[in-house]
């Protein structure tokens, strides 16, 4: 009788990956879930199990909903801006025949900078006393007094979205450009012979070829932008008066400011649930696109 031999070798090979996934992905999720049900405090040694109290406190806090709404606006506006700018830049670059590589490198520079450099550079450019841009606008007579891009509540959120579009559009551009270059040119030639307009070529050849790539980019960027912390925190710290406080900053202040790690964990779990729902919807749409293509 033949006995089935267990192949330990293959398990050994995947073990490092399992350990990394277990340590870096699974553990934080379950520890957050667990702590969200406790009074865990950053510097207190002991804590108690309190059921869903943290969730109740978070969900009855008007500041949480304000931060949630700010996060939604931040994500939608940033994403739309990044897609429009990135898409337009990719279409333009796709038509360039000379020095395409140089342009591509130049345009991706914002994406290549570390967040801290971007934040400090923009803080310096927009400084309300000595910043280059406010002084330029004032000297040119565009503004009657120095515009306060980072402290005027009517300007600060728009300013941050502009910076995020400037920062994120190159990534969209590079990916869309790659997708554009995979479209067979003979399809455009055939369409031209058939008398299709530029708009029709764009709608019926370009869009179908790149929509899945754009769809996946939207999924990834939604997650990244919604979770974005560094740029906002480094430039405004969530202020003034919480005007730019998003959910990740709210969670950070809860955990590291007031040191209520349990409540902060509850915020991250709620954030996780929300993003999972968003991703589920996105994948449904992408799946439908894929089905249509077949």
């Amino acid at each position: 009788m033949k006995t089935k031999k267990i192949d330990y070798g293959r398990w050994l090979l995947v073990l490092p990956a399992l350990i990394v996934v277990g340590t870096l992905l699974v553990y934080p999720i379950f520890s957050s879930l667990y702590y969200s049900l406790t009074t865990k405090h950053l510097i207190k040694a002991t804590y108690d199990f309190i059921g869903f109290d943290n969730y109740i406190k978070v969900l009855t806090d008007p500041d949480f909903f304000k931060a949630f709404l700010t996060s939604i606006l931040w994500t939608v506006a940033s994403l739309l801006g990044q897609i429009v700018v990135g898409f337009t830049a990719a279409l333009a670059l796709n038509r360039v025949n000379h020095l395409k590589g140089v342009y591509r490198i130049l345009m991706i520079i914002p994406w290549a900078f570390p967040s801290i450099v971007i934040a400090l550079a923009w803080k310096w450019i927009l400084n309300g006393v000595s910043g280059f841009l406010p002084n330029l606008l004032y000297e040119m007579g565009v503004a009657s007094e120095l515009p306060q891009f980072l402290s005027d509540s009517s300007l600060v959120f728009g300013t941050l979205i502009f910076i995020n579009i400037w920062f994120g559009a190159p990534m969209i551009m590079v990916n869309v450009l790659s997708a554009l270059q995979t479209i067979p040119q003979d399809q455009y030639e055939a369409a031209q012979i058939d008398g299709a307009s530029k708009l029709q070529q764009f709608m019926y050849i370009t869009v179908p070829h790149i929509k899945v790539v754009v769809g996946l980019l939207v999924v990834l960027r939604t997650i990244w932008v919604f979770n974005n912390f560094d740029i906002i925190y480094l430039i405004t710290g969530g202020g003034p008066a919480n005007a730019t406080t998003t959910v990740p900053i709210y969670a950070y202040n809860m955990g590291w400011g007031t040191k209520l790690l349990g409540r902060s964990s509850a915020v991250t779990v709620l954030l996780l649930a929300f993003l999972l729902i968003v991703c589920f919807i996105y994948f449904k749409i992408i799946g439908k696109w894929e089905k249509e293509d077949k």
């Binding site: 992905l25 934080p28 999720i29 520890s31 957050s32 799946g287 894929e290």
Partner: peptide, 20 residues
């Protein structure tokens, strides 16, 4: 598709969860 959904879910989860 199910696998890709699961992988994305795991990625989202890890980003939303606290640091180790």
């Amino acid at each position: 598709k199910t696998l890709s959904v699961l992988l994305t879910a795991l990625m989202v989860a890890s980003m939303a969860a606290g640091c180790g």
